[in-house]
């Protein structure tokens, strides 16, 4: 089975804190890491290979620093890593990103399943996975919480929608986006880590990909960020004083006033 996992390097969100005085993000010393949701995608990609044999490839689009994310994936046990990196890819929105990844995956040629994380923690759109499936002309199943089975050319998965679960059957090749329920990501072995430190990372630029230059990066992105601003801070709240009984009393009174209790 040929498995492709797409990942993104993001600022490690667990590190993101707000400066209480200026109410802005504290960015000093923020590490870059594999998008947390992609860790589940990687783990599932490796488990599928362990279960069904084959080859797991990880692909990422990003600047050359994203190599470290790919090395991390190699250390975990992925067989092959490809970085799509080119100045022409910069400024891509989800449409251009999906297109670029699709060009990369088409260049690989053979694949049975493509796995993406549910969304990234920086962009938080969850759009690249389904968009990529559309670009590749394959079906997708989003919010997959369990791969039940893969038999012959069929994939059976459980997806988690708003308030219910569905068992979905899809043909191969398909793309799935996975939630954190699907597995517990492993730690890399030291041996894998050492090998990954030295492993070559294949880098493909826009020439390597072929494709239409106008569809990459900022030129291929129909959406533009016009303005970025801090959200309006909430009004200062009220600290309810007194002993627990009196605190509860004050709270319930206020909730009754607001017709909430």
């Amino acid at each position: 089975m040929e498995i492709i996992v797409c990942i993104k390097q993001v600022p490690a969100i667990t590190e993101v804190r707000i400066d209480p005085e200026t109410n802005t993000l504290v960015r000093e010393g923020v590490e870059a890491a594999i998008n947390p949701f992609d860790m589940y995608a990687l783990e599932e990609g490796i488990r599928l290979r362990e279960r069904y044999g084959g080859w797991t490839t990880v692909m990422s689009m990003g600047p050359s620093q994203a190599e470290s994310a790919l090395r991390e994936a190699l250390a975990l046990g992925v067989d092959h890593a490809i970085l799509l990196s080119d100045k022409a890819f910069a400024g891509a929105d989800t449409l251009a990103t999906a297109y670029t990844l699709a060009c990369g995956i088409r260049k690989i040629g053979v694949y049975d399943i493509v796995i993406c994380g549910l969304k990234t923690t920086d962009g938080d759109t969850g759009q690249v996975g389904p968009g990529l499936a559309e670009e590749l002309g394959m079906p997708h199943v989003s919010y997959v919480r369990r791969i039940i089975d893969i038999t012959g050319k069929t994939l059976l998965v459980e997806r988690s929608l708003e308030d219910y679960y569905e068992e979905i059957e899809a043909p191969l090749p398909s793309l799935i986006t996975v939630t954190k329920e699907i597995n517990e990501p492993r730690l890399p072995s030291f041996k894998g880590k050492m090998a990954a430190r030295k492993a070559p990372i294949e880098v493909w630029n826009s020439n390597d990909l072929g494709g239409v230059l106008d569809r990459f990066g900022i030129r291929g992105s129909p959406t533009q960020v016009m303005k970025v601003f801090n959200p309006q801070p909430r009004l200062k709240g009220e600290l309810l004083q007194g002993n627990p009984k009196s605190q509860a009393d004050q709270l319930v009174k206020r909730l009754v006033e607001k017709r909430l209790a």
Partner: peptide, 11 residues
């Protein structure tokens, strides 16, 4: 049995 390595702050 194996030697696993954690190198991120979180892990």
């Amino acid at each position: 049995v194996d030697v696993l390595v954690a190198d991120t702050k979180e892990s």
